[in-house]
């Protein structure tokens, strides 16, 4: 039912392990390079990198670390970046609650997930205690 028709081509990809602060900085820098290569302007690039930072940090602090897959997309001549975050952590018990502004399990402002969602064009989240958390974001280059 969730099967999506691949309307886009994947031009390249890069897989990164994210389990510590240095990894967080590395994944941010990689995302920035991919955004630049896709012709993103500075604001679009900053939005994508900030969303990546929020989600990678969540993965480190709640999911016990995981992987980030950065993919360069093309659809009808438009380029975009897709980043998939996968962890094997305990999962998010109540996704609806976690997606609300102000909800925070540990000392955050609770802006991580809802904030990241506002910074990208597509946002998908799946989470379970068995499978961990799986988040996919896409930001397209405007033009």
């Amino acid at each position: 039912m969730e099967e999506r028709v691949p309307m886009h081509a994947i031009l390249g990809n890069e897989m990164l392990s994210v389990s510590s602060e240095p990894d967080l900085i590395a994944v941010r820098n990689k995302a920035r390079l991919h955004a630049r290569a896709a012709g993103f302007g500075l604001t679009d690039e900053t939005k994508l990198v900030t969303a990546v930072s929020e989600l990678a940090r969540n993965m480190i602090s709640h999911g016990g670390g995981g992987q980030a897959l950065i993919e360069d997309l093309e659809q009808n001549g438009r380029q975009g970046i897709r980043v998939t975050f996968t962890d094997r952590g305990p999962g998010i018990a109540n996704i609806g609650q976690a997606m609300q502004d102000g909800y925070s399990s540990i000392n955050g402002l609770g802006l991580g997930l809802p904030g990241a969602r506002r910074l990208v064009h597509d946002f998908e989240i799946k989470s379970s205690a068995k499978e961990g958390t799986h988040i996919v974001i896409v930001r397209w280059n405007r033009c």
Binding site: T43, T46, L111, G115, R118
Partner: peptide
């Protein structure tokens, strides 16, 4: 603060 950072912060909700 850089303008792109300001735009992003507000959209983030901060």
């Amino acid at each position: 603060m850089q303008p792109a950072v300001a735009i992003t912060l507000v959209e983030l909700g901060l």
